[in-house]
Nucleic acid binder design. Structure first.
Lengths: 303, 303
DNA sequence: TAAAAATACTCCATAGGTATTTTAT
DNA sequence: ATAAAATACCTATGGAGTATTTTTA
């Protein structure tokens, strides 16, 4: 008889491709993992994994079983979530993923309120880029993510939270710093400092400046917005900074933040979750709270 | 941690609405069933069942859990089926439901061939009417059913097997017995003998004779075709008999079987299974075999 | 030869059984 | 009064741990 244990272990093994790490994920020892996988193979009469020295491989027959097993594991987690949800909104564990250009700025705006209003919520935070977040959402490793639209995955549902306009960050001693509203078209590509490849903020900035190619862009990208802003402050160039950073209290005398001419470049920040998740109400409540905190931080925005 | 055991027991309980019978279905004792259900309620923090003297009731919150649990149980059975299927086609257990107006006539045509070609198949037969079959298919209690089209359930897939024309069964000493091809329009309703309400064959016969109402039909319906034919033989009236019965070797000197004028009334016999089932190949193989046996029995058809 | 998986064994948690009590109609 | 579910208690299966061996790149 196939048990949930067999399926959970199999899914973990397929994710890690390593008995030891899969065992760790499931909070058991490696022999326990081996025994269960072996038993499952025995029961099904199929070789599910090819044992090899390096990373093990799931056999082709195994792939289909793994796909179905993952769906079952997710469904059962949904049952547990559904039950928990009945206890009230935003109660119990919530795995929340946030992109790196949002997390450090949005969290200070929201966490205190979240804590105060939902003291029984146990948030588990994960900060990583959009592509990882989407994969982890699908796999059920996280419940909900905060990222920039568009998402374009039919199996995910999204809820727009707020529009985050970009500001042009210029060194205070730059001659242009005193000028009026900025114009994306006038930015000289070789002065534009951006995050490294893979950050959605980089793509958005490029799109808004109508720079299709990164050919003549300034040097190497940075890993964090803070670093980019330090570079701007030191006079190495300019960058597009989300208003969110300003609302989170960013204030550096060496940097001037100038709004763009309308229509200002902007990114749409949203929640995303598996459409099949039973925790819709949780996510909607979370969304309302975030939007509210965003609006409340309006006064703190830079001029 | 929710286990498959919890879910299987819950589904059984929801089906039987009785701890004792649910326990029996799961091959355990009633206290074992009680303990698991109680534990599941504990874990989820939800009252799933209302314990009452007569039939117990699933609570409204419980219904949703039961729905999801049933889906999970079916998915896991699909995984097991998928594995078994890999061993070869038509191997291992197969729960097959057949409507009562087909089973006793089709089985003798097919079983020997099925046995010979697929000796490792372990068929479990269930004979009941269309509505039960459809419910049991959906619940996964049977894997596949043989019934008459149309089915009209989006979650089921069907495969037409053969067209079963109706013959008019008349007593040999009836003055009409010697006449040529029969005409449905000329049948006198008060002479038409049919199965009792609920058999699809009854509805089909009525439809083909364009008798919307059963108002002036002959007496009470019978439970089996054999009984109806006995009544015809005894001169109590006529009936529409599927050609299948003739191909299965029906031959009674007291009864004359007359074909209908074209287009002859007929029923379409088909296989049906849950579209999500991984055993499609099994079912298609079974379908081919049945169709072949049907054709092979052609010679035995009455004139 | 080293990392990784399998094996050997021991232990204990828990599912299930039997006997009985409680509950609800 | 009685059927049905809950409880008490015991047993045993099997899942997990530790220690060790086998495998294979």
């Amino acid at each position: 008889m196939v048990t949930m244990r067999h399926l959970r272990y199999l899914v973990a093994l397929a994710e890690t491709r390593h008995f030891g790490r899969a065992a760790e994920l499931c909070h058991v020892t490696q022999p326990a993992m081996s025994a269960q996988i072996r038993e499952l193979e025995e029961m099904l009469g199929i070789d599910l994994v090819e044992r090899r020295r390096g990373a093990i491989a799931i056999t082709s027959e195994g792939e289909e079983i793994v796909r179905r097993a993952a769906a079952v594991v997710a469904s059962v987690r949904d049952i547990e979530d559904l039950a928990r949800q009945r206890q009230g909104v935003l109660v119990g564990p919530l795995a929340l993923g946030i992109i790196p250009t949002v997390a450090p700025y949005l969290l200070p705006l929201c966490l205190a309120t979240l804590r105060a209003r939902h003291p029984r919520l146990e948030p588990r935070l994960r900060e990583t880029r959009t592509t990882s977040l989407l994969a982890e959402l699908a796999a059920g490793r996280i419940d909900v993510a905060i990222l920039a639209l568009p998402v374009d995955r039919p199996e995910l549902e999204t809820l727009a939270l707020f529009t985050d306009r970009f500001l042009l960050a210029t060194a205070a001693d730059d001659p242009d710093a005193a000028a009026g509203p900025a114009d994306a078209a006038t930015i000289r590509p070789e002065r534009l400092l951006l995050l490294e490849d893979g950050h959605c903020l980089r793509e958005q900035a490029l799109a808004h400046c109508r720079l299709a190619s990164a050919a003549n862009l300034a040097t190497l990208g940075a890993t964090s917005l803070t670093t980019v802003l330090q570079m701007v402050a030191a006079g190495y160039g300019v960058t597009l900074m989300p208003e969110l950073v300003a609302r989170a209290g960013f204030d550096d005398p060496r940097i001037v933040l100038r709004p763009f001419r309308e229509p200002a470049p902007a990114r749409e920040i949203a929640l995303a979750w598996r459409a099949a998740s039973p925790r819709r109400k949780d996510f909607q409540a979370l969304g309302r709270l975030v939007t509210e905190c965003w609006k409340a931080a309006d006064g703190r925005a830079a001029a």
